[in-house]
Simulated assay, not measured.
Amino acid sequence: MKPQHLLLVVLPYLPAILAVKYVAINDAQSSPGGARFEAEIGIPYTLEIMKDINYFIWDIFQQYNESERKAVELVKVFIQQYDGAEAITYGENVNVSALYLQGYQGNLKWEYTSLLHHELTHVFQWNGEGQAPVGLVEGMADYMILKSNYYPPAFAKAGTGDRWDQGYDFTARFLEYCEELRSGFVAELNKKMRHSFSEDLFVELMGKPLPQLWAEYKAKYAH
């Protein structure tokens, strides 16, 4: 990587005891997508929303004490030239595709902000140490998009989907339904997924097994 292609800025999260830092790097400045990122989004905006989204996620998960949170010290967002998914998160690193940014039709800054709400949720959420269904993990990430109002018109409507763990926007809508029945449900579920996962968590929190919850959810929106 050439020095002129790297721009690194670190912002501390206050209070200092939390020591969360944010880094944004455009590794694709010479590509059309990387250039569009610089023109329409930029590193300063990325750092600003990384911190804002971090606060937002902790608030939705009701993680007001440091002991309740994942021990995240440094979060990095990379703009990289690769083909495939629009963004991929590995641990505390979020890789955003410059090719996706290049080809996106519409308000790129809005879409990018929506995308980071999803990807940064993966950084901070619990997943039962890998035991939680992928659909639930992805659904929680899309739930953040839903709660932040950064969801597109094509986002799943309430009551749609074939399974509770279908993932993404379908599962996000089901989580929204559970939250309506029990305020704080999503936060409690996330906390209970710190070390393990079982479908019995839904019985514990909602008083009903998942098949019944899903059937009642579908029935509510059947019309």
Rank of each mutant, 00 (worst) to 15 (best):
L189W: 04
N190R: 10
N190I: 09
K191V: 00
K191T: 00
K191P: 08
K191L: 13
K191S: 09
K192A: 08
K192T: 05
K192I: 00
K192G: 05
M193R: 14
M193W: 14
M193T: 11
R194Y: 11
R194G: 10
H195I: 04
S196A: 14
S196R: 13
F197Y: 15
E199D: 14
E199F: 10
E199H: 10
D200R: 14
L201R: 05
L201V: 03
F202R: 01
F202C: 03
V203Q: 12
V203D: 02
E204Y: 07
E204T: 12
E204Q: 15
E204F: 07
E204D: 14
L205H: 03
M206I: 04
G207W: 05
G207Y: 02
G207F: 02
K208G: 00
K208D: 00
L210S: 04
L210N: 07
P211A: 05
P211M: 08
P211E: 05
Q212Y: 00
Q212D: 00
Q212R: 15
L213K: 11
L213P: 08
W214G: 10
W214E: 06
A215V: 00
E216W: 10
E216A: 12
E216S: 12
E216C: 09
Y217V: 01
Y217K: 02
Y217G: 02
K218M: 01
K218P: 04
K218L: 04
K218S: 07
K218C: 01
A219M: 03
A219D: 11
A219Y: 07
A219P: 10
